[in-house]
Design a protein around this nucleic acid. Structure first.
Lengths: 245, 245
DNA sequence: TAAATAGTGTCTTTCAGACAATATCTC
DNA sequence: GAGATATTGTCTGAAAGACACTATTTA
């Protein structure tokens, strides 16, 4: 990199604003939800009163890395510290923030429904779990609608060939629960037998004792062998006709 | 996003340095190469004399978007303006740049070998095409070794199930040329018949007249239908035994 | 006609999808 | 036992991999 727009020792040229935003997904009420916070109502703020993704400025004194900054904000909002956290991309332009040239680093997180305790911000911000699909069509603050759309697309795409949905469940989880999670995210039913074969064959989970629900036969509980990353399947889920190259 | 570390109208808190770096891939001499530039030798500069990825500070006055900034830098270095340009991710931390907290937005570009005219920087920077694999093991400036490694991993991963390698070829290209490109990036041979079936079935190319080489039977030339994005295949390339979950 | 390269055909195996059958629980 | 849910088994068709074969060029 040249890094020589100006004499390299003088770094006094204007810098963009740098923020981190997080798309936090969760399954609630049999639907895919995303966490939104309402921006302060003061008219001096950009997009007052609008719903936005949780996030904020990188705190140079406090944050050692971008990932760390994202993890901190996630924990502040949800109380969840261990979860799947993946970088989504960055959005930067002269006009996405009325306060000046800004670049945001977007992350997306998958967290299990239970164990979440929503924290209102110090400034008593309003917080809600919004249905993901409809939220992406809402008019959100900044370019957060676009970012949420990208997160949804990434999630849906990856769900076709990875074990990602497992991160949306508490452990131990059962195969029927996992299948239901896939179906919610994919938006279509999945064949039970094929699903189970696929999950068990790829061996990214291990047995964790029986779990019994309210009715019917108890199911085997599973936990992930590696909670730090998802497993890739060699093929996508696909009904017979579609995606058939 | 809170964006309220300080009163929201006062934006006078310290900001990270913001840069863009590009991993530019190209096939040369039957190998995958990446473009490196040598950093200035002045000791006042970070990593003097080290090889680095091309890139530099975002110019708030000049660049409208991050993608635009990347495209500009790509054109400045290679003379290539139309090519495949994808965001790779961002790397930001307190200590990756000795000059202070910095965040870089990394992109990766695929360009055809021909038509490239390397431009030495205004400051007569040294520029070279390095073999990609070995370059990723070299000690590059900043965290560029890590970034290059991530780019290589992303490329190799995507080559298994996308049409990406087509962007490394000039049009019109032939199927044997495309196959050779896949083999170079994958690092293993690919069956001719299966390869051709796959490429032709997914119909991301269209015929563009016969092309004849030095020897043997002339081949059909093809061009991409859509140069803006790659096509996804429903399955990965995989030899019989491996990846056979 | 030999060498080189491009393109096609065929066989086999794998495996996902469909769906039926069986197992184990509660009430 | 009825109802509910979990788990397994069997069949089938699509498609990828392996590999042999044919086609078209130059020397």
């Amino acid at each position: 990199m040249t890094r020589s727009a100006k004499p390299t020792t003088a770094l006094d040229f204007p810098r963009p604003l740098v923020t981190v935003d997080i798309v936090i997904f969760c399954i609630l009420e049999d639907a895919l939800k995303v966490l939104l916070v309402r921006r302060p109502a003061e008219p001096s703020d950009p997009f007052p009163g609008r719903w936005a993704l949780p996030g904020g400025f990188v705190d140079v004194a406090r944050d050692k890395t971008l990932q760390g900054c994202a993890a901190r904000k996630l924990a502040e909002k949800t109380g969840v510290s261990t979860s799947y956290l993946e970088q989504l991309g960055s959005w930067g332009s002269a006009d996405r923030d009325p306060r000046g040239w800004s670049a945001t680093h977007a992350f997306f997180a998958l967290i299990p429904a239970q164990g979440v305790t929503l924290q209102k911000g110090a400034n008593a911000q309003e917080v809600e779990w919004a249905e993901a699909e409809s939220a992406s069509r809402k008019r959100l603050a900044f370019d957060h609608g676009e970012i949420l759309g990208a997160a949804l697309a990434r999630l849906r795409s990856k769900v076709e060939y990875t074990s990602l949905p497992a991160f949306l469940l508490n452990e131990p989880f059962t195969l029927p629960q996992l299948q239901r999670t896939y179906e919610i995210v994919l938006g279509r039913p999945v064949d039970k037998s094929a699903f189970r074969k696929r999950m068990l064959d790829s061996a990214f989970m291990e047995e964790a004792g029986m779990v019994d629900g309210a009715f019917g036969r108890p199911a085997m509980g599973y936990r992930l062998r590696d909670r730090s990353q998802a497993t890739l399947f060699p093929r996508t889920f696909s009904p017979r006709d579609s995606a058939g190259g």
